[in-house]
Amino acid sequence: MADGPSILVIGPRWVGDMVMAQTLFSALKQVHPGAAIDVMAPAWAGPLVARMPEIRAWIDAPFARKKLEFGKRWRVGRSLAGRYDRAIVMQGNWKAALVPWFAGIRRRSGYRGEMRFGLINDMATLPPEMKRKTAETFFRLAGGGSFRPPRLSVDEENQSALLAGNHLTRGGFAAFMPGAEFGPAKRWPEEKYAALARTFLAGSLPVVLLGSVNDRAVTNEIARLAPGTIDLAGRTRLEDAVDLLAAARVAVTNDSGLMHIAAAVRTPVVAVYGSTSPENTPPLTDRRELVWLKLDCSPCHRRECPLGHMNCLKTLDVRLVEGAVRRAIGAGTPA
């Protein structure tokens, strides 16, 4: 039995947001040390939530994106009736607030979002300047505590098996995460990643490509242009990516969910920004180098370049990123 409140958190639907959500979970534990915190999130999130020591349990959110599924939400909500003292809804849409309401949870916290008066009865205020600062926005929902960067636990047994199976050693490879689910305006071009990979391979530092099955077209092209890279995109589970990133010497990445995972396992991160800004969603670690051209048209926060040229990423030279890598790993060469 918990000696603090039982809290149901309706979690985010994106990998990076789920990692940043740990800023809320750790703050809740500071405010309520005995709290039992459960997180409702999509199936992919279960293994990630399991790496957060603040969380008691993950609960599946079996709802399709952009679908109301009113009856399913009612059934899930009623199955949770009587179990929680408080709910915190991290998503901004009104559908996400239905399950706590159907569950009869008396205190339902969140930001106003999509006209959720009544569904949310403990309304938090979000200053306009905080709108895109995701981690800080999540943290404020705790109502107290100090801001702590996410820290994911590592399964050393799984890590060792993954390293052995791919002929890698701890600290002996670079991880590249060239994908971004948000859209192409976040992706540094494949030929740039490939040029950087060839530099590393020439210095005898193996390069591992990580990502989801949706990133395979991107990673396949990099592997074609940089023979010898190890393409694991779509071939690993999310928890495998956590453990592999924890063993990497450096992670080179777009602004993506895997970037936040790399930061949360304390691997040096070199993050490339285009349509988004490192002032809003930086990797939450002091072991980072941020590469951003700060063009007049950036950040536009669009999935695709509204001007059609992608200059914020296409004109970002490989040498800038290579220099950032050297600074991140504190050595004169990548190898």
Rank of each mutant, 00 (worst) to 15 (best):
G234D: 04
G11H: 04
R83M: 05
G323W: 02
T219F: 06
E279N: 10
F25E: 05
W14M: 09
V154E: 05
H309S: 00
A57T: 15
P278N: 09
P100R: 06
F63W: 09
E156T: 08
H309Y: 09
A262Q: 03
R216H: 05
G71P: 09
A45Q: 00
G104I: 01
A180Q: 06
M20I: 10
G77V: 02
T276H: 09
R235T: 03
D3E: 15
G118P: 05
K29Q: 12
V270K: 06
N220F: 11
P268F: 08
K29M: 08
L238I: 08
S277T: 11
A175L: 01
V49R: 09
R326S: 05
E114G: 03
G228W: 05
S109E: 14
G16S: 02
A87I: 00
V325H: 07
P100F: 01
A135P: 07
A264F: 11
S6E: 15
V9G: 07
K133Q: 13
V213M: 15
S153E: 12
L163Q: 01
E279W: 15
E221G: 03
V269A: 12
R86P: 04
G118C: 02
R73Y: 01
E54M: 09
R287P: 02
A81Q: 15
M177G: 13
F117V: 12
L293P: 07
L225G: 04
F139T: 05
V272C: 03
K314S: 15
L126M: 11
A61M: 05
G4P: 10
G211Y: 10
A217T: 10
G46A: 06
R116K: 13
R51C: 04
T315Q: 14
V291F: 10
A262W: 07
F63G: 00
A96V: 04
L28R: 10
G77T: 08
R116V: 02
C312W: 10
R78Q: 14
R132P: 10
R75F: 08
V89I: 14
K67Y: 09
M18D: 07
R51P: 00
A96D: 12
L24P: 00
R112S: 14
M115R: 13
L68M: 13
V76C: 13
S109T: 15
